[in-house]
Design a protein around this nucleic acid. Structure first.
Lengths: 127, 127
DNA sequence: CGCCTGTCTTGACGTCCGTCTAACCAGAGA
DNA sequence: TCTCTGGTTAGACGGACGTCAAGACAGGCG
């Protein structure tokens, strides 16, 4: 058992992804799109976007599920499912310490996504 | 009819959205998440991510559908459907000029999304 | 050991999404 | 006006997604 550390099909973006040339600078290759799109998709749900924010902005850089769950009008399993989605997208890491499970954000992929969307205010691309 | 300029439920993020405090700085409010999540969701498909990039990185800041369609192994209607999704998410604008339809990126919302994901390398949030 | 609390997994159900074919609409040109 | 080309809409189909209730697992405490 101990499914958490089982070899889930995790996207390890921190490994070999060429750290995202800005989307508006050159065309994103199909392979990069295939790797990065799931991360955007994971953030494409209001609940997960809030979860991600709560985890990333947490005090010690980590958030307990016991703090996350009561923040929504959803059942525990549903929150757990969303957290699993974030985990499989490579956006967060989970660790069990005693009774509670703590989630921690992975800044690297957040930086990749932000870099992909970044637009230098140099070009007069306004309108 | 002229459905294109009909009052589609467009998300006008450029209007009153408070231009995104970084996700990792403070918790994203539910309303902000509800507004921004659809934009991430729209980018959560490899085809749309590439379309977005092709449009945003185009020469004059705009791309013709006739150039976008042959870049994929998909039918015209499917590409049109994806473009509509990007349009309804507020990520692009469409304009018909003569025979062809041109799509243009909206830098403002891209900046909002990038700002939301941005992480200052100041905090030692690295594990 | 046995119970209790916290979290995850399983299975199910309804809805939304990605794709296609067929049909329709808008301009350009003869 | 008729026709051709480019693009969108309508409808349908299979698969994925969001949610839940019920059950299973893990760790702490008596």
């Amino acid at each position: 058992m101990s499914k958490q550390q089982a070899p889930l099909p995790l996207v390890d973006l921190n490994a070999d992804t060429p750290c995202c040339p800005p989307l508006a600078q050159r065309r994103v290759p199909a392979e990069t799109a295939a790797v990065l799109a799931p991360a955007f998709k994971a953030l494409g749900d209001p609940v997960r976007l809030q979860l991600m924010s709560m985890i990333a902005s947490a005090e010690n850089g980590e958030a307990c599920v016991c703090d996350l769950t009561p923040a929504f009008d959803l059942t525990g399993p549903t929150i757990s499912h969303h957290l699993k989605t974030l985990r499989e997208a490579g956006l967060v890491d989970a660790e069990r310490r005693g009774t509670w499970v703590y989630y921690r954000a992975r800044p690297q992929i957040l930086r990749q996504l932000a870099g992909l969307l970044s637009i230098e205010p140099t070009a007069a691309s306004q309108r």
